[in-house]
């Protein structure tokens, strides 16, 4: 079965004579919602799109579920929330931000099985377990990075004349992320965490092919002490929502993972109108994302920080 494509499952219709009650109890399915400002919300548009399971595992949901189809207004609302949440997030101590990310890893660990099952359902199958494990490891990695970034990126300049001059790395503000379709969990985790470790807040567009695992990840975020609005995740069409992010003036930077040249070009062109810091990437196979030499590092944090240079005279 092809990974990354939702395949419509034929639902066996049975006659009344054939119908049997479920073994045990009827499971309670989940309503999938977007994660904005710390709350799980429907799209303001009231619209949804359908996502079908690629492989069946014993989760509560029916094979096909409705997921919110995020709109331009949802993007605007989320960006505003992220913008308002940013100063307080950056205002926390780096140590505190690190602890919050570590707490996230703890929560993910506790839901390791559920995350894995969800990925299998979305078609990840063979790589699902290692993808989840890698996502947890990566969260621990960035938890320990929050209070090291300054040490690695700050410089002092031996400027001429009696001046003390230093340059620090500061967050850009709100970063828009278009996560890759696959790997649905690790792609989102790997692109979101370095952005918030650097002190930014973000609006991320979840994998279109497996948004359910992203929502599950949001449930981890919601129970991890992460302040509301730091990470906002919308579901819907990446091509549509990515362009809305690119057009929004309060979005300082965009990280776009897509194989569509058309989308990349449009996001880069629209981003130019407000001089956005846009990085676009081809998608990668899951093994590359799992590889810590590729899928994480200082460079990931560096992409979305600004250098601020402060001069002060020295004298009596």
């Amino acid at each position: 079965m092809e990974v990354g494509k939702a395949v419509k499952r034929v639902i066996d219709r049975v006659s009344a004579a054939e119908w049997q009650p479920p073994k045990g109890r009827l499971p309670v399915g989940k309503t999938y919602k977007m994660f904005v400002g710390g709350a799980f919300i429907r799209s303001e548009s009231g619209r949804t799109f359908q996502v079908s399971a690629i492989a069946d595992v014993s989760l509560a949901d029916p094979a096909t579920v409705n997921v919110p189809l995020g709109s331009r207004k949802d993007v605007r609302d989320a960006v505003l929330i992220a913008k308002n949440a940013q100063p307080a997030w950056w205002g926390r101590s780096a140590y505190n931000r690190g602890q919050i990310l570590y707490r996230l890893a703890e929560v993910m660990e506790a839901r390791r099985e559920e995350l894995t099952q969800s990925l299998v359902r979305g078609g990840a199958d063979k790589t699902a377990q290692s993808e989840v494990d890698s996502a947890i490891e990566r969260t621990v990695y960035y938890a320990g990075f929050c209070d090291k970034v300054a040490a690695l990126l700050t410089t002092q300049s031996p400027t001429g004349g009696p001046h003390f001059t230093f340059s620090v790395a500061e967050p850009m503000g709100v970063v828009g992320i278009v996560a890759p379709p696959q790997p649905a969990l690790l792609g989102l985790v790997s692109s979101v965490l370095p952005v918030i470790a650097g002190g930014n807040t973000c609006v991320a567009i979840a994998s279109e092919s497996d948004p359910r695992t992203s929502v599950l990840f949001c449930e981890c975020l919601a129970t991890s002490d992460l302040p509301a609005g730091v990470v906002n995740v919308l579901t819907g069409q990446a091509a549509d929502l990515g362009v809305q992010l690119a057009k929004h003036r309060d979005v300082a930077g965009i990280d776009l993972w897509s194989d569509s040249n058309e989308l990349r070009m449009q996001v880069e062109r629209d981003g130019a109108e407000s001089v956005k810091r846009v990085t676009t990437h081809d998608t990668m196979p899951t093994e590359r994302w799992i590889d810590s030499a590729v899928g994480q590092g200082l460079g990931w944090v560096e992409r979305f920080v600004e250098t601020k240079t402060v001069w002060h005279p020295v004298g009596l």
């Binding site: 410089t155 300049s157 031996p158 400027t159 001429g160 004349g161 001046h163 001059t165 340059s167 250098t307 240079t309 001069w311 002060h312 005279p313």
Partner: peptide
């Protein structure tokens, strides 16, 4: 407490 200072070592 200064202005328009430039140096190749300062970003």
């Amino acid at each position: 407490n200064t202005y328009n200072k430039f140096d190749p070592s300062a970003p």
